[in-house]
Design a protein around this nucleic acid. Sequence first.
DNA 1: CAAAAAACATACTAATCAGTATGTTTGCAA
DNA 2: TTGCAAACATACTGATTAGTATGTTTTTTG
Lengths: 196, 196
Amino acid sequence: MGKAAQTRKHILEEAFNMVYQNGYQATSVDKIIEQTQVTKGAFYYHFKNKDEMGIAIIREVILPRLSQGLLEPMKFSDDPIDGIYGAIEAKILNDEPYYVENGCPTNNLVQEMSAVNSKFYQTLRQVLDTWIQTIQQSLELGQQQGQVRTDIDARDVAEFIVSGYEGIKGIGKIYGKKVYRSYLAQLQVYLRTLRE
Amino acid sequence: MGKAAQTRKHILEEAFNMVYQNGYQATSVDKIIEQTQVTKGAFYYHFKNKDEMGIAIIREVILPRLSQGLLEPMKFSDDPIDGIYGAIEAKILNDEPYYVENGCPTNNLVQEMSAVNSKFYQTLRQVLDTWIQTIQQSLELGQQQGQVRTDIDARDVAEFIVSGYEGIKGIGKIYGKKVYRSYLAQLQVYLRTLRE
DNA sequence: CAAAAAACATACTAATCAGTATGTTTGCAA
DNA sequence: TTGCAAACATACTGATTAGTATGTTTTTTG
């Protein structure tokens, strides 16, 4: 990676952390350049404006982390339902206090920005689409392989799973990690009802 | 209501709407006084600072609306599970596009403010406590009356229901009202598993 | 090696921010 | 009716905001 690309990546990763912890609108460009020790000239050389940087955070930090940390692990199991549950359980139980307190990066931005900025809306929708489609495809594969009931709508179920995940990550910001346990138990009960 | 109390209420209701649509940090005091046509002197006569107004919005606008619009209706049925489901269904299906797009007022603030401001955290936690406890008490009553399984933890179930609700309201901001339908169907399935 | 472009640095701007200082008006009690 | 506090009004402040103008340095390329 060239030096310029490194600078860009450095900005995006530090800015991601600041946005994750404090929100997008509360993270000023001045604070970012102070944290990164990158000058304003360099910042605006790499990004046309603050919003373009925000979109780049979603595309280049959040989406790859989601893929690597949650979506790819889902595909490791022969049984789709085990794969989905296993990936969620592993992700959620390994969450450090820092991640419990700050919730889900995607969800935070959805709540803060989707109704306010259409470009954020579009980009966040793409992230959720990727997420939901991954689960949907797993379930449909399971249907073909006779592991998942064929009378369920894979898309509906995928949306329900994602919304439950985001819901508990949100509640976890208030009540802490302990709520993850009962969530996982209820999720298991729910997923069992999908089996053939 | 005296004239001063009316001014205060007017500020809180307009500010609530602005915060609901644009977020707390994006809603400036200057914008609020422009929208309400209340002068800055009047604003700071009624509220020590912006955060105190934010807390007043939660206590005096959000909490009463939640109680009246969701928690009280839950108690109308003889059957607790029917009461819980009926209140959620009525609330969610009657949501105007405006409420679909902007999600749940409580959840929006939880995601934006709970990790950032401890006073917001405490106050929002009280709102969630009220909500969860209402459901919990309904379920415990159902257990006494032989309508709900006694081997389930009413608190865990209440947390799961609230987090699912907030999750779908969050997803609804992206995908629109159509996701509410499948959510309600899945919720019904889940609630049935709680019956004695 | 020289020219040109890429990558960065510094100093500024106008707008907006939360909050304050210092008034004036209004309602009500004595 | 007068006095006084509650309720509001106006004009300001210093800090912070996103963004720009105008440089200099570094890297690449012919």
